[in-house]
Amino acid sequence: MSNASPDRDGGARERLQRWLPKLVLSPSCVLVLFFVYGFIAWTSYISFSDSGMMPDYTWVGLHQWSRLWTSWTWGIALHNIWVFGLLYIVSCIVLGLILAILLDQRIRAEGVLRTIYLYPMALSFIVTGTAWQWFLNPGLGLEKTMHDLGWQSFSFNWLIDSNMAIYTVVIAAVWQATGFVMAMFLAGLRGIDGEMIKAAQIDGAPAWKIYARIIIPQLRPVFLSAVVVLAHLAIKSFDLIVAMTGGGPGNATAVPATFMYSYAFSRNEMGIAAASAVFMLAVIAALIIPYLYSELREPRS
């Protein structure tokens, strides 16, 4: 070759340079492969094994899964997550959209109000749970306050009512996440082409019609993102329920996340715990993978 002597000394360094990017990426890849995908595989296997307090690799087929599916508590947990998830997602989106539209009317103190609506998102669920547990305390909280204010018949004891406790969790969770959904919608609203709205105004459309027919339909991607993010948060919800109700009264506010935790660490039923965890992963994966795929797919250039 004609490019012999002056470049040869750089050869080793250049070869290293060529491998450096992959070398630098590899620790993260190893960690993720082992701690995420390896662990998923392990947990999935355990859900088909005879594991109890300790892992036992004897294959028992769907035994743990059928035990899970016949479990009374798991039924409650599934029912609760369904109720909780639906109410949580719908309330957050409705409230968040309303707040965003109201804030988008050239409000003078917009910055301050936005900060106020969004701050709960910075708090730990445990703090939120502690605060709301106190706020809704039947003896000393909101109920007593209303009585003191003269509304003697006011009664609010949902926190200790088995049928209603899950709704208190919804209230606290909505309080925490609405500001975030509002911020997403606000960003969406700010991204809408102003000339189109001007054109609609010139056409004589009233404000509410402009929102209903032109603006809100254009926020479809925001709705999609909000639903995915909120559903994902709902399925993962654990901290808030532990802090507010501890899953109680009784099992009244159990959700899959608390179910899994108690079977894994208190009841020493690894097999069932693993099966419930795999179920949660499957639901989230069915939701997230198509979403990520569509978000990451770039238009070909």
Partner: peptide, 11 residues
């Protein structure tokens, strides 16, 4: 006169 096919950009 020098073949630069395999020469690093910086050189």
């Amino acid at each position: 006169g020098r073949c630069i096919n395999d020469v690093h950009p910086s050189r």
